Amino acid sequence: MTTSNVLSLPFRKSTQISLSSTIRQYISKKYDQHPDMFRHDLEVIDALRRDAVNVREAHPSGIKKLQAYAAQLVWIGGKFPDDIGAEFTWYPAMGYNTERPLVRTSLKYELMNILYNLAALYSQLAVSANRGSTEGLKTAASYFSHAAGVLDHVRTAVLPELSIPSPPDDMDSPTLEALTQLCLAQSQECFWQKAVMDGYKDASISKLAARVSDLYNNACEPAMKSEAVSSAWIHHMSAKHHHFAAAAQYRAACDCLEKRKYGEEIARLRDAVACVNEGLKETRGAYISKAVVEDLNGLKRRVEEDLKRAEKDNDVIYLHVVPPKSELKILDRANMAVARVPPPVANPYDYLGDQAEFGPALSAATGS
């Protein structure tokens, strides 16, 4: 599986602001304490934000920077109103308006952007993992499942609490759902690739491939409702859906050959050819990576050669009846991909404290 065979999420970009000065003003107005009492904490929050928004490359060190700032944002959000007057400027990562910044004064909006970038980082780490080795595939599958978990958390836990009228195009519910399913499909694809590499039985590889196909299809449906997911990505996901439907039938056909079910083998190979051809239709006139097109063409050649051999052998030797597609048993699925929310995102309070990983919660946010 070549790098261009999978997709990663681009980062959202922000501009620098002093969150501390807004919190200082708020404390001055609302509490009878001088904000200088909290000077150290206020410097810390600015440093945390600076570190988080400067995460711009696929390096594991960025994970803690984004998680630590996100945890403090959750804490601050529990102590202050969502709109404390800080103007958070963020540029969309996807869609048609990536040069047009969106400025909002919501802490939840800031949190959504930070978590989105955490998901983007996980997806980029997955793509940069060495997927030519079984260890690298396990690592990539894990990163994709964390990306899916963070996106799902944003959609189900943060988005419903957003006080601004409407979320940005690339962080609305259909887009987040599409990207979650895409990351799950790519995680499952890593498990499939590992099974191929490890020489699993055809029946097992078929079950894994069938589930990859389902997940790419699950990503296509909400992607069509999204204003931000490009048509190139939708064609990519649809091509992969058909590719893995074909791969699943092909492996099931190999299993039939081993079990001497020659008629069923031919029926499944014919269906595999039909699925590959559907996948290739998605690549016409659409910008899809060369690697995806090459994978489809490679599979097509293999399936057509096997079909020719199987039909010839059956006509001359076995004379088995070839069942119509409607009589073929639907393939079993084996699901390995799970959306995993990293514990610091699911339970940020557990990571704040004097002895905790992210250090003490900001005392300025207690308002006491």
Results as ranks from 00 to 15, higher is better:
A286P: 01
N277F: 10
S213V: 00
A274C: 11
C190D: 04
K290G: 07
N217A: 14
S226A: 00
V196Q: 06
S231L: 00
H236F: 15
Q193S: 11
K290F: 12
D202G: 05
D271T: 10
A219C: 03
E189K: 14
I234L: 05
I266P: 05
D255W: 12
C220S: 06
E258F: 08
N277V: 11
K194T: 00
V212G: 09
A223I: 00
M237W: 13
S206T: 09
A228D: 04
A310T: 04
Y287F: 13
E294D: 15
E265C: 14
A203S: 00
A195Y: 00
D214S: 14
E221W: 00
A247Y: 11
V196K: 09
I234W: 05
E265A: 10
C254V: 14
D255G: 07
F191A: 02
F244P: 06
P222H: 12
K201W: 04
K312Q: 02
A245W: 11
A239L: 00
A246L: 02
V212T: 07
A272E: 05
R284T: 08
E258W: 09
E278V: 00
A232P: 01
E305I: 04
E305A: 09
E221G: 03
P222G: 05
D255P: 06
G285M: 06
V273I: 02
Y287Q: 11
A195F: 00
A245I: 03
